[in-house]
Design a protein around this nucleic acid. Structure first.
Lengths: 187, 187
DNA sequence: GTGATTTTTTAACTTATGTAAAAAGATAAG
DNA sequence: CTTATCTTTTTACATAAGTTAAAAAATCAC
């Protein structure tokens, strides 16, 4: 729970009173590998902060699974459109390992934002960070071919690589598992 | 200038005093086709609102140009990472037609956010909308092949299609112009 | 209107990817 | 240990995309 606050405070300085107030709104939960933090079709009611474990955000198109992003220790995230507009999510979030995470609900965040200007700033920073990450992702998909995307992922996510399947990695990279296997073989 | 305020007000209700205050901070500019609203390497100091005209956000990789997004009438936007952190931008913005646009500077936005809670909310909504758009873009790049991406663009951007070159469209879709030409030919 | 420039299409060739199916390897459960 | 399941690699084939170059079409400037 403290880690959530430390992380928020790092995004933008929080006042002591905001920290005290925030602490009362946090809930820590545990979920087993394979279970859902959010089912697609449901509205995302929370900001999620992963204390320990690993999760992926993904969606289906005709049973095929496409991965938007992996989240691990100290990642603070949500499903932006569902959370921001409190509408059903087209994306699901599932635990890839047994996972401990801390949540802050939409309603509580609204309350905190009304009470503390710094919390509104915090939320803006969080959204800007998410947007920046997605911009980077789009950039990579435009400028890199599959082999380059794989190479970049390996360099930037050395640790994560040990924890995800190559099937999931292929899905994230936007290629088939067969193609990823060939890319790995040919160098 | 009024359009900028109307647009903000639509994102989140603004108080009358915020509107009055905001109005004093807006500047309207005109730029000719081919000229830059932002050069890459420079820090993006503004939110841009296009009154009339068309612009594209893009970046270079070894002289090759890759288009992030097109912006036209009533689009409110910025280069999120550069603007949010006030650091040099890896992306440029150029006018594709003679363009009239209204700006709000980073410093003025900060001031307005301090004075009016609704302006902070407005900025959050703007970021959430940008993030949602990018999430949609990533989704399309994952689930659709080039031909499907082209078809989707045509349906969703009928009007825009008349105003951009097929070279720029190919760049946006992440394929070569030759490939786009073949896709168009084969149906 | 004519020449110059830009945009778009076509052609030929090479390489990479998707698909489907099977084999090999690794992991987990009993 | 052994079976069952999940993960990864390999094979074979068809299709689509990238590259380079050239031609055709459209647009712009004088």
């Amino acid at each position: 729970m403290e880690n959530f606050i430390v992380h928020c405070n790092r995004l933008t300085g929080l006042t002591e009173s905001a920290k005290v107030d925030l602490r009362t709104k946090l809930t820590t939960k545990h979920i087993a590998k394979g279970h859902y933090l959010l089912q697609d079709g449901n509205t995302c009611k929370y900001l999620f902060f992963i204390n320990q474990g690993l999760a992926k955000t993904f969606f289906f198109k005709e049973d095929k699974e496409f991965i938007m992003r992996f989240f691990t220790e100290s990642n603070l995230f949500t499903v932006v459109d569902s959370f921001g507009n409190q509408q059903p999510s087209g994306y699901a979030v599932v635990a890839l390992e047994d996972t401990s995470y801390t949540t802050l609900s939409y309603d509580d965040l609204q309350t905190l934002c009304q009470r503390h200007h710094c919390m509104e700033t915090f939320f803006s920073k969080l959204l800007a960070k998410a947007a920046t990450h997605m911009m980077q992702r789009i950039t990579e998909m435009l400028e890199d071919n599959p082999a380059e995307r794989y190479a970049r992922f390996v360099t930037n996510n050395q640790a994560l690589l040990q924890r995800i399947t190559l099937g999931d990695l292929a899905s994230y990279l936007g290629i088939t598992q067969v193609s990823l296997s060939r890319i790995r073989a040919r160098k």
